[in-house]
Amino acid sequence: MNNVTAALPRKSLTAIECKFLKVGNRMLLELPNGRIASAALMDIVADWHGARASMGFEEFAKGWITEGNAKNKHADKMLRELFGLNNDPAPRRAA
């Protein structure tokens, strides 16, 4: 009898995503408290690779940040800026 296990979905970053991570990581490291955000960025990559879902990296990362997984206010703020997740109030609330 053969023991067969289901393979996890194969994930790989696109060339654009690789460049984004490289440049984004360098930008974070230049900021005060940027090392914390850089570590959280690497946590996103590791969690994406470990997740069984087959969603793309950007979608996964935005969800990860939105769910509050950064666990540090500085890292959360910097990652939101890096991924374009604005904290601006909704138009109805701004008035």
Rank of each mutant, 00 (worst) to 15 (best):
M55I: 14
H74W: 07
N25P: 00
M27F: 00
K77Q: 11
G50V: 03
A46S: 15
A39V: 06
N25C: 12
K19T: 07
D88C: 07
A46F: 11
N69I: 02
E67F: 07
R80P: 04
N33G: 00
C18Q: 15
E59Y: 06
L82K: 07
E30H: 06
V4T: 13
D76K: 03
L13F: 09
A51R: 02
N69P: 05
A75R: 05
A90W: 01
G63E: 13
N2V: 11
L13G: 07
L41A: 04
G84I: 08
A61F: 00
P89K: 09
I16W: 04
M1Y: 06
F20G: 02
R52N: 05
P9A: 11
I36H: 05
N87E: 14
A6I: 10
I16C: 04
M27A: 12
P32H: 03
K19G: 02
R35T: 05
K73W: 04
P91W: 09
G24A: 07
N33R: 11
L31N: 04
K73M: 06
P89E: 12
D43G: 05
V4I: 14
E81Y: 04
N69A: 14
G68V: 08
A94R: 15
G34N: 08
M42F: 10
K71V: 02
I16N: 11
K11Y: 09
A95I: 10
I44K: 11
M1I: 07
A53I: 09
D43P: 02
D76M: 06
M27S: 11
H74C: 03
K19I: 04
W64M: 10
A40L: 02
G24H: 04
A75M: 05
A7M: 07
R26K: 07
L21G: 13
V23E: 14
N86W: 01
D43C: 14
M42K: 12
M1E: 13
F57G: 13
A7P: 00
K71Q: 14
L8H: 08
A37Y: 02
S54E: 14
A40Q: 14
A40F: 01
A46N: 15
L8I: 01
M42G: 02
F83M: 10
A7D: 08
M1K: 09
A53N: 10
W48M: 13
P32A: 10
K73Q: 08
L82Q: 12
E17L: 03
N2K: 11
A37M: 03
F83H: 08
C18R: 15
F60G: 12
A37V: 02
L79W: 01
